[in-house]
């Protein structure tokens, strides 16, 4: 049974998961209509990672995200209208529509930024944790990254320093089984979660289709960080049902494997925990929210060529 203190009430949980899912599906529709200026990297199927992790966080905690970061932004509390407007290249977006999907940030809610560079957030999150520690705050930093980023030098550097300084950080490896266009078996040697042990701090692996399991593991890791006991590496085993980018036919993916993941879909499971009436109410609420976001974005002027800097 889910721990009531550790995950939101069922309707809230479903609402958050569905927002992540439908936000990306709606944006993908807009992309296919030619209304999204930049590329889109979707994380369909991975919703439980962001929602489960952020359930353990408060507003003053900070996160760094990735090129596949819409879920992280939404789960940390970014504004749906401003995100939609940014992706649609509108002046009401987070940075006036200039930067798009890979460069959304909202420091007011602790979102230090999505990132166009794989592994680029690892040093920054480590630095944020250092800054929180110096100031004596009991906030924590969470670094989201994919298993592809574990092949970068930043991964080893960040884990080492975080361990040496007992930094208040949780490293969340979102293992979605693909690094860009290639299965992670080609990229990743050994087991990611076990690398923490070599640096002398805990590493755990959780089922990314189970939002409660993700929240539980994160709560433990965050409690450890807040108490001054240092970092934890949480490897969330999830699955990317979308291609690397919208338009990627993902011919490298095994359809049976994908179907097995769809059968365990966290969004559908969260919906099944509600009564039909409750679920329908949330469905309507999210559709309304997103339709409004799209309408508001499209009503706003496109990014201003006079405001390049």
């Amino acid at each position: 049974m889910p721990d009531d203190d550790r995950t939101p009430p069922p309707a809230d949980l479903y609402r958050q998961l569905l927002l992540c899912r439908r936000f990306e599906e709606v944006v993908a529709e807009q992309y296919r209509e030619g209304r999204v200026p930049g590329p889109l990297h979707l994380a369909l199927g991975q919703e439980a990672t962001a929602v489960g992790v952020c359930a353990a966080l408060r507003r003053t905690d900070v996160i760094t995200s990735t090129h596949r970061g819409h879920h992280h932004c939404l789960a940390k509390g970014a504004d749906v209208d401003r995100m939609m407007a940014e992706l649609l290249g509108r002046r009401t977006g987070y940075s006036g529509g200039r930067n798009g999907s890979m460069h959304i940030a909202d420091p007011d809610v602790g979102l230090l930024g999505t990132n166009g560079i794989v592994g680029g957030g690892l040093p920054i999150a480590t630095g944020a944790a250092f800054g929180l520690q110096v100031q004596g705050r009991d906030d924590v930093a969470v670094c989201f990254f994919g298993e592809g980023a574990t092949a970068t030098g930043n991964f080893g550097e960040a884990l080492n320093i975080a361990a040496l300084w007992a930094l208040p950080i949780v490293f969340v490896c979102e293992n979605n089984r693909f690094a860009e266009l290639t299965p992670s078996s080609t990229h990743v040697a050994g087991e990611v979660w076990q690398r923490a042990e070599a640096y002398g701090f805990p590493g755990v692996r959780v089922d990314g289709s189970d939002v409660h399991a993700v929240a539980d593991a994160t709560h433990d890791a965050v409690a450890r960080a807040r108490a001054g006991d240092g970092p934890t590496l949480v490897e969330v085993m999830t699955y990317r049902l979308s291609g690397h980018y919208v338009g990627d036919p993902a011919t490298y993916r095994d359809e049976a494997e994908a179907q097995a993941w769809r059968d365990r879909d966290a969004v559908a499971r969260a919906r099944a925990a509600l009564t039909g009436t409750e679920a329908a109410a949330v469905d309507d609420e999210i559709e309304e929210l997103l339709a409004t976001a799209v309408d508001r974005a499209l009503a706003a002027p496109t990014a201003d060529p006079e405001e390049l800097g």
């Binding site: 040093p123 480590t126 630095g127 250092f130 800054g131 929180l132 100031q135 550097e157 320093i161």
Partner: peptide, 22 residues
Amino acid sequence: RDTPISESTIAGLGIGAAAVGL
């Protein structure tokens, strides 16, 4: 703070710490 020989993360330490108020 004395850091390990990790230039990328040394720079990142500064970025992240500046982002949270130092």
